[in-house]
């Protein structure tokens, strides 16, 4: 069991997500940064998709009534155990009564705390991930708060592991996303097309698991004002008439009616979860033939099926 002493800004139980229901309006959800989530689980010896805690921005305090192994990955949050600094991207042994505190996210937005065995919460439509807008999944369909007790599952697991040198990602306040033109790209003016790929945007405070409203050069979406509602995916960049783009995330709407300018490539989707309010976000053009190569390159390091680190995981 784990005791929550402080839920922080927003901490939720997440797993690999709830795929296959977008036609019902139910997004894939799951860890916003599935890569760091998978690394955290891998370090404690869990399956990569075991339910873990996702802490956005910081402030999470946990107490461990039993000795166990935990791992931290994702945003750097000055983690401490009983007031002593501990390293991010590492597995840690905790003793009975130890207290883990996460301070404020310095680089990135979301930190993952994986616990040996994984967290046990009821599944909804095949997943333990919390979807806050509809209050389902995870721990009672809501964010964690002081006084919550989380039950651990005692699934078989392997010994804790250490991430090899060079395998932990370097997160930054500047998020660079490689993207491809999306269906309404051709409707953008030449100037807007250029701005999308050269101007930095800033993530506004309206940034959460659903999406991030960006501010930057006004992007004109041309003559299209009223579009038929059309499908969206995490990583789709929509341009409403006010010219301030909206980037869709893990809990984002399944369809939308604003022109779609860009789609972030699969290999970079994990970075969406590390966009914090105030982060700089820029887009770089990715050509059709390059996307599969970039994906295969990443997978060769981290995807078990491609000879990489984490069994069952792939970008």
């Amino acid at each position: 069991m784990i005791e929550v002493l402080n839920g922080g800004t927003r901490a939720t139980v997440q797993d690999a997500g709830r795929p296959g229901y977008r036609h019902l309006g139910i997004p894939g959800s799951g860890a916003a940064d599935k890569f760091c989530f998978a690394l955290a689980n891998w370090m404690v010896g869990n399956r990569w998709d075991a339910p873990a805690i996702e802490c956005a921005l910081g402030g999470l305090h946990l107490r461990f009534p039993e000795a166990t192994t935990i791992a931290l990955a994702g945003a750097e949050m000055w983690a401490q155990i009983n007031g002593m600094n501990v390293k991010n991207f590492s597995a840690l042994s905790v003793e009975k009564g130890d207290i883990l505190t996460l301070s404020f996210a310095r680089d990135g937005c979301r930190a993952y705390v994986a616990i040996a065995g994984g967290i046990k919460v009821p599944e909804f439509m095949g997943s333990s991930s919390t979807y806050l807008p509809a209050k389902f999944g995870g721990h009672e369909g809501r964010a964690l708060r002081a006084g919550d007790h989380l039950v651990l599952s005692h699934r078989p697991r392997e010994a804790p592991r250490k991430i090899p040198n060079g395998y932990a990602p370097q997160l930054s306040r500047h998020i660079v996303l490689r993207a491809r033109p999306a269906p309404e790209w051709e409707l953008m003016s030449a100037a807007s097309q250029r701005h999308l790929f050269v101007s930095p945007f800033i993530a506004t405070p309206e940034t959460d698991r659903m999406g991030s409203r960006l501010r930057g050069d006004k992007i004109a979406s041309g003559s299209v004002r009223s579009m038929t509602s059309s499908p969206l995916l995490p990583g789709t960049l929509q341009i409403p008439p006010d010219g301030q783009p909206i980037l869709m995330l893990a809990d984002g709407h399944c369809t939308g009616g604003y022109p779609r300018a860009l789609q972030v490539i699969r290999a970079d989707l994990w970075l969406l979860g590390q966009i914090a309010p105030g982060s700089q976000v820029s887009f770089r053009r990715c050509f059709t033939e390059n996307a599969p190569k970039i994906l295969a390159g990443r997978n060769s390091f981290y995807a078990g099926d491609s000879g990489g680190l984490i069994d069952g995981f792939a970008f």
Partner: peptide, 18 residues
């Protein structure tokens, strides 16, 4: 297919890249 998402005039299909 991983996702099949219909809308009024289009259909989005997510395929398994592996």
């Amino acid at each position: 297919w991983k996702e099949i998402v219909p809308s009024y005039k289009s259909l989005l299909i997510v395929f398994d890249v592996s």
